[in-house]
Amino acid sequence: MNTSITTPSAAGGASRAAEAATTVRVWDLPTRIFHWSFALCFAGAWLTSDSERLRDLHVMLGYTFAGLAVFRVLWGLVGTRYARFASFVFPPRELVSYLKSLLAMKPRHYLGHNPAGAVAIFAMLGLGALIALSGFATYQDIGGEWLEELHEGAASTMLAIVLVHIAGVVVSSLLHRENLVRAMFTGNKPGAPAQGIRHAHRVVGTALLVAVLGFWWAYQSGAADAWLPQPSATADAQDRHHDDD
């Protein structure tokens, strides 16, 4: 069942003004930790993708990126109201209707993810899985050059989706007169009290952050070498060749 709350922007002026007086919790802490960690890992991996000197950092961020994607899939099944996939699986006609309202500068308001944002999320999770699997295969020298090209192509496609997503956030923030970026930091948005979630799940969010930071420490200190797959001998030889050049 779709649990997102919608109101037409033009006709619901009075109700929106009343909601603005009340701030409710929409995004739990695990969702917010995931969002910013996922964005940081993708940005960092993109910036280090062409550097042999920073390959270890690129691989570390790639592993983290993959682990975060797995967490988000699980949290999408058992998380809070607006984090669950069930709350933002929209039929195609609702996506078309939302896009038309957006072009008319009168977009429908969704307390949770809107249909366009939902498409971006599913696309990024799908591409994230493809990026992680093709990147791991490349790291292990499996599949040859075509897998490396697939890895780069998937990453480029995801970058394009991320840029469109950011543009959509800016446009929606301006049209709805609410700061969506700030909401993803605080977890709060204007809304009726009954629409908010009860629990922020701070323990789960803190555990997720500790797991990310702990993995980074283990990777950088070498403690993770005992249980992480190591690069193939061919990949190591290629890296040494590039370093010599």
Rank of each mutant, 00 (worst) to 15 (best):
N2K: 07
A10W: 06
A10I: 10
G13N: 02
R16Q: 14
E19G: 02
A20W: 11
T22E: 12
T22K: 12
T22C: 11
V26K: 00
A39E: 04
C41Q: 03
A45W: 00
A45S: 05
L47A: 08
D50P: 09
S51F: 06
L57F: 11
L61P: 00
L61K: 02
G62M: 02
R72E: 15
L74N: 15
L74V: 14
W75G: 08
L77G: 12
R84T: 13
V96I: 15
S97A: 14
S101K: 07
L102P: 01
L102Y: 03
H109S: 12
L111T: 09
G112Q: 00
A116I: 12
A116E: 07
G117L: 09
F122I: 10
F122G: 07
L125D: 12
G128M: 02
L130H: 01
G135L: 07
F136W: 05
I142A: 07
W146G: 08
W146Q: 12
L147Y: 02
E152R: 09
E152I: 13
M158P: 07
A160R: 09
I161Q: 03
V164D: 01
I166Y: 05
A167H: 06
V169H: 09
S172V: 02
S172H: 06
N179Y: 06
A183V: 10
M184R: 01
M184K: 04
T186A: 01
K189F: 09
P190F: 04
Q195V: 09
I197N: 01
R198S: 14
H199M: 10
A211P: 03
F215D: 00
W217T: 07
A218C: 08
Y219F: 14
S221D: 10
A224D: 06
A226I: 00
W227R: 00
D239H: 11
H242D: 15
D243E: 15
